[in-house]
């Protein structure tokens, strides 16, 4: 057998092996690897490359080396999932850089971080003033995590005491002009319903690039033809407005009637409507 055939066979089988190894190590991003894991990856790829073009003879020595460089780190990874000390050893621990708003200079020195490095990392996190930081830690993967002081944190509905409606993930029901049946069924909608909604909007399925249904069953679409204007869903705001008008009407009727009993009935219903409006507002306002 000529040598080049051997190279073809070895290379092809090694591609399969490397693919399996990569799959077994999971989905971690390159930038999240520790230096140790990075070096292991390098060694494995160098061994695979040299074995595949036949620099290592016999072939089996290369495979043994590859196996050991794969199995030991793989066992370490498995062990690290189970045990905290092993994890700290293999993946490293985070280092606290800022605590109670004070910079820990000793920890900076330990991680070979200059004050400029710290400022740069903080700026990466959109923090330009050290005084705004309550707590910052250098993670094991070299990224810095910042907890800003409470008054410097983004405002949330909870801070404002606003009740908001819970939402679920929207379902994408049309892609590239084709109906996706599975997400449609997950959302609990039928094809018939979708067709009716498209009819209401005055578009046909073929012209729809993307269509999504939100957790209130409202359909939003993007068309291939960008010159066409698609109306935004009006149902919820309209419903809220009608309910408010209804409440106002009840008050007017209560004021204008002479009948005592009717007056009472209108007043009671106006109050009921006000309660209903308060209850519905978080769900109906976008």
């Amino acid at each position: 057998m000529p040598e080049w055939v051997n190279v073809v066979i070895r290379s092809t089988s090694l591609i399969v092996v490397i693919f399996i190894i990569a799959k077994l190590f999971g989905k971690r991003h390159l930038s999240q690897l520790s230096v140790f894991e990075y070096l292991i990856g390098l060694v494995i790829s160098v061994i695979a490359a040299t074995v595949s073009i036949g620099l290592i003879t016999p072939f089996w020595h290369g495979i043994i080396g590859l196996g050991i460089w794969f199995i030991i780190p793989f066992l370490l990874v498995l062990l690290a999932i189970k045990s905290k000390p092993v994890r700290d050893l293999v993946r490293g621990k985070g280092t606290v850089f800022i605590k109670d708003g004070k910079v820990m200079e000793d920890n900076l020195k330990k991680e070979k971080y200059s004050s400029d490095d710290l400022l740069q990392q903080l700026r990466n996190k959109n923090v330009f003033q050290v005084a705004d930081v309550e707590f910052a830690v250098l993670e094991a993967d070299g990224d810095i995590s910042v907890l800003p002081k409470k008054e410097k944190q983004p405002l949330t509905p909870k801070d404002l005491g606003i009740t908001v409606a819970p939402i679920k993930e929207p379902q994408t029901v049309v892609m590239d002009g084709e109906i996706l049946y599975e997400p449609l069924a997950t959302g609990g909608f039928s094809v018939k319903w979708l067709e009716t909604e498209f009819e209401k909007l005055g578009v046909s399925v073929e012209n729809v690039y993307l269509a999504q249904v939100d957790s209130f069953g409202q359909l939003t679409v993007d068309l291939f033809d960008d010159k066409l204007q698609v109306p935004a869903p009006q149902e919820k705001p309209l419903l809220l407005a009608t309910t408010k008008k209804m409440q106002a009407d009840m008050e007017i009727f209560a004021l204008s009637t002479q009948n005592k009993q009717a007056k009472q009935m209108y007043t009671k219903n106006s109050q009921k409507l006000q309660k209903a409006i308060d209850r519905l507002t978080p769900f109906l306002s976008d």
Partner: peptide
């Protein structure tokens, strides 16, 4: 809306 909503809380309201 009650029929079409996905979240239990919205449905109930």
């Amino acid at each position: 809306l009650a029929i079409r909503s996905q979240s239990k809380e919205a449905q109930q309201s």
